[in-house]
Amino acid sequence: MLEARLGETQLLKKIVDALKEIISLSTLDCSETGMQLQSMDNSHVSLVSLSLQTGCFEKYRCDRNVSLGLDLKSLSKVVKSASGDDSVTLSAADKADKLLLSFESDNKSRTADYELKLLNLDQDHLGIPDTNYACTVQMPSSEFARICRDMSMFSETVVISCTKQGIKFSANGDLGSANIKLAETSKGDITIDVEEPITQSFAGRYLNTFTRATPLSDRVKICLAPEVPLLVEYSIEDYGYIRYYLAPKVDD
């Protein structure tokens, strides 16, 4: 059986918020090492991968691997009903058809138990090869969210160029054009590692959706390489991550 307790429901709320705009149904695979989830969006343009190692949890027990087919909209409704500082325990039997969520208030005076019906999902899993990225940029996640929002006012396509001098985001549309450049800073809040300069185009709508994960981490890592999808990674409390992959736009 599975029993996993998070000290604060706030973390689960943030994770669900980071997933539900991209995917509506997904399987959460639980094993003794933690929880994993991987899904593509309906149009097969982006993929989200979530990993939570046991260190994310106050208590974690999973005797046998269990796959939980989740409707994220339903999970979101349940999680919204709890207070952020409640603790939450997820539990499921070995061949479960439901997930139990038990919320407990700080002073233990209020408990709330929910049963969520599980779905039998037949999901494709993709193998993501290890990639030696040409450019790796780390910046404050709020800065990345702001740039993605500002770019999307100008065009649905955002061009990202990365050189040793910095990373540049550009958008060209009916309104005009926008260019935002960031250089590496000495205090280390922006780091730019470039093996080889790169310029690629991406759909701004997806980049914007990825920034729903901003509350999970102060920092975001952006990795680019020729001919491979963009990787946008938010770490989760030292023991996990949410990674978004986005296929580039290519010239016709």
Partner: peptide, 14 residues
């Protein structure tokens, strides 16, 4: 205008 590539062009099914 650039066209959107499909992610499955890059990652294989396992």
């Amino acid at each position: 205008t650039p066209i959107q590539n499909d992610l499955t062009e890059y990652f294989s099914l396992v």
